[in-house]
Amino acid sequence: MPNDPWYSCLASCQTMVPCGQGMHTVRWEAGALVLLAHADAEAELVLAALGGEKSGCIELAETWHRHTDDLSVLAIGPRGAADEINVSWDDVKQAAAAGPRGGPARRGRMRLAGPPGSAGAAARQQAQQDMDDAERRRTDLLSLLALGYGFQVRLAGQVAAAHAVRPDERARPALTAAITGRLALVAEQWLGIDPGQVEVSLHAGPGWGTTELTGRGEARRLRVSLPAWWLARVWACGLPLIGGHLVVAVERAGWPDARVLGVRGPGAEPVPLDVHAREAAPGGRADAGDAPHWEM
């Protein structure tokens, strides 16, 4: 496994976020958020901790950091560049205004069936607290999604990298599902296989993993074993499929040039591929560098 940071194949990206009465630029660069309009963000954070008012940018940075190992980011975020997610800052504003106590967000929502016995005051209080927490969390996630695709995949990479560095068996189901959901779409392009026929297991140990194609017809299965790092180093960097090769690892990270390991077909040994990144096509939905297109 290379020692370079997982994001070495990613260019910086930036977007505008509401802050105060205007819009400020926020940039992702080398794995960190940079608040360009706030020269002394650290000091602002200290002031905010002492009860001072938080700016929109500062709140966003805090939200980002709260979720850098949140597996829900993988569950909710994009599965690929074609997986469009539409959240605007107006949506975030409405969500924040609606919760956590009352407002239109509550209307029409299914209420829980009460417990079989009568709920005590403590239980009701706890239930209310749980609801408030859930709504705050949801507003958090909406604001992160509102940053756009470039930030969404970078945050997903950050989350995957956090769990790859600190393996925890409790995270295995979420990581397995996260890789499956993304690899299934890649495999459909790669082999024309039904995404539902892709089975992923989490690879642990040395090496990049395995690929295997078995069965025929409905029983056909593409079985792939990949490490959690794949999500960060390969998928989040826009590298999963290049020149008909499924990229399984990054041998030498870099932007815009890198060397990756790709397999031509299931069961084949990976071969090194020198790849070069091209910015998103004009008119594409991503900002420059947000959804890079890699070529051999």
């Binding site: 107006d90 949506d91 504003k93 409405q94 924040a96 609606a98 929502r109 299914m110 829980l112 239930a127």
Partner: peptide, 17 residues
């Protein structure tokens, strides 16, 4: 309606203790 107005899952939906 936008996401801010959408119904969301809330804890204890199933309430199976």
């Amino acid at each position: 309606p936008r996401p801010g107005q959408l119904r969301v899952t809330i804890p204890n939906r199933y309430g199976i203790a």
